[in-house]
Design a protein around this nucleic acid. Structure first.
Length: 270
DNA sequence: ATATGCACCTGTGTGC
DNA sequence: TGCACACAGGTGCATA
């Protein structure tokens, strides 16, 4: 579910509501996430005040004082939602942070591919390997050319490689390649300057459009207030196999790259 | 360096 | 109705 636009949507909806809030109580109902939640998680978090939430790729960082952070990754099915403390727990609510003002920040994740951990920036190995953020930096044909130099793999695989660029997942890789009119299987180091320029522009426009519409709610994505996004209505390629291309009407094709469903228009994307 | 498969999980949709 | 199977927004590891 959550790629950069969804994670950024959650950050933006939570930020004004949790800024400065103190964590009164920590309840962990399930410790077996992607990484086991450590035994000292509750005691290290209790009593801390949450600062300005940051995002790095698909990771959220909640400053908790003393140069320490609560690091959150939503995996495939995770959500982070603010609810009234009076609400009964739901299935797959794994972690609840009781905040001042009778509100709970709840981490829910049916598939448990998500991750929560505490640490200083330098101690979080997850963050050490991720690449530049596509929303925070200026993306040009030159920048992409440098990043793609000598990389012979399909451009879609590289777009989804978090060490190369952080935050792009399967939905948005497909969408930006459609908007840039580039076939997903094209070798990254063989793209022409004109195509790199189109991709840089598509990367910016797809991600900013998706953030503006509150992300894509394919089946169940919700923002920090439990509301759905609207970018799923704009999807031109993702999950549209057999449906007509919005530009030319040709049926969208599905292929598998790196084990992931990939969608493209055989006429628009060369 | 690249390519593939699998593992980790639960939920949903499909076809029989 | 039940059952088997494929597949899903992600990541990391093992194997060629």
């Amino acid at each position: 579910m959550p790629e950069l636009p969804e994670v950024e949507t959650i950050r933006r909806t939570l930020l004004p509501q949790v800024r400065g809030a103190r964590v009164l109580h920590v309840e962990v109902r399930e410790r077996r996430l992607r990484r086991l939640i450590g035994p000292d998680f509750e005691s290290r978090l209790r009593g801390r005040a949450l600062g300005e939430i940051e995002r790095r790729g698909k990771y959220l960082l909640f400053p908790i004082g003393g140069a320490e952070y609560l690091l959150v990754h939503l995996g495939m099915s995770g959500t982070l939602e603010l609810r009234s403390s009076a609400q009964a727990p739901r299935p797959h609510d794994h972690v609840r942070l009781r905040l001042e003002g009778e509100r709970d920040l709840v981490f829910n994740d049916p598939r448990r591919f998500g991750l929560l951990c505490l640490g200083a920036l330098g101690d979080l190995p997850e963050l050490a390997r991720i690449g530049p953020d596509p929303l925070c930096e200026a993306w040009t044909a030159e920048r992409l050319r440098a990043l793609f130099r000598g990389r012979r793999l399909p451009v879609k695989n590289l777009l989804m490689d978090q060490r190369t660029i952080a935050g792009i997942g399967n939905i948005y890789a497909n969408e930006m390649l459609h908007r840039a009119a580039i076939r997903p299987r094209r070798r990254a180091d063989r793209l022409r300057r004109r195509e790199l320029a189109a991709l840089a522009a598509a990367m910016r426009s797809v991600l900013s459009d998706a953030v503006r519409l509150g992300g894509s709610s394919i089946s169940d994505f919700r923002d920090g207030n439990g509301r759905s996004g609207y970018f799923q209505l704009e999807l031109a390629a993702y999950d549209r196999a057999g449906e007509p291309c919005r530009s030319c009407g040709s049926p969208i094709r599905r292929i598998v790259l790196a084990g992931r469903s990939s969608f493209y228009c055989p006429r628009c994307q060369r």
